[in-house]
């Protein structure tokens, strides 16, 4: 009998620890499927962040490394400069990629480092329990913004993809979402392209994935998907922001 669906080879047997309704699991699976389809499992090194995905090294069946908070792009740079023929990706949340590690993110992109970043934007700190993220929306509540984000006090949510798309070295920048089956398919295509960009040696590739955090948003999984659609997508519009060079 033909197997129509199964666990991607590039995922381990380990069960995810993520909360019900969290979309990390979906994105892990998409990354693993892409690695399988490109047949690069044995040449790929993944880097886990600090945040909910800190244990990503337990889930990806790859050579994996866990980095300090915000430092994956620098660590990836070190690995890639030793093994330029291998595939290196970072998997990072919004606190990691857009707050404490902003300098590393910007400069890896600016250098056109031949690495791929999968950036999970759920507009909140998950692991530490719902604090305000750099991407928390105006008015959105967090434990450290109990009356909702006040832009006069806390400034404005950071649009990382728009910012990084201005850099020469960032050759592929896309924002996707995983709140509907159709968008999940589109997300996978973008992630695949971001890996192909690296395989072609074109430059830095970033895929920002809008994700849910029902636990810290205080919503049910379904409500969280609706909230993402209604609130995040208007501020963080989906699509390819930049794509330079042919990958096929």
């Amino acid at each position: 009998m033909e197997e129509l669906a199964g666990r991607p080879k590039s995922l381990t047997e380990q069960e995810f620890h993520y909360c019900p309704g969290c979309t990390h699991g979906i994105v892990h699976r998409l990354v693993a499927e892409v690695i399988d389809e490109l047949d690069i499992q044995e040449q790929t090194i993944g880097i886990a962040p600090v945040g909910c995905a800190v244990l990503a090294y337990d889930y990806f069946d790859l050579d994996m490394l866990e980095a300090a908070h915000g430092r994956p792009p620098a660590v990836a740079t070190g690995i890639k400069r030793v093994h330029p023929d291998k595939v290196v990706f970072t998997y990072q949340g919004d606190g990691d990629y857009a707050s404490i590690g902003t300098a590393e993110s910007v400069h890896a992109a600016s250098r056109g480092e031949r690495i791929t970043t999968v950036f999970i934007n759920n507009a909140i700190y998950g692991m530490t329990g719902g604090q305000m993220a750099p991407t928390t929306l105006e008015g959105q509540k967090a434990t450290t913004a109990p009356r909702g984000r006040d832009t006069k006090e806390a400034g404005f949510p950071l649009q990382m993809s728009e910012m990084l798309a201005t850099l020469e070295g960032a050759v592929y920048v896309a924002r996707v979402s995983v709140d509907t089956p159709q968008r999940i398919k589109q997300a996978k295509e973008a992630i695949k392209k971001a890996f192909k960009v690296q395989l072609k040696g074109l430059g830095y590739a970033l895929v920002e994935v809008l994700s849910t955090c029902p636990t810290n948003w205080g919503l049910s999984p379904q409500q969280a998907l609706d909230w993402l659609e209604d609130n995040m997508i208007p501020y963080y519009p989906l699509g390819e922001l930049k794509s330079v060079g042919e990958v096929e």
Partner: peptide, 22 residues
Amino acid sequence: VFLQAESEVAAINMVYGASAAG
């Protein structure tokens, strides 16, 4: 490879990566 990093923080983490890579 010589690389001037954007900061000392980045430099030591590049060292971390390169050492991990052997």
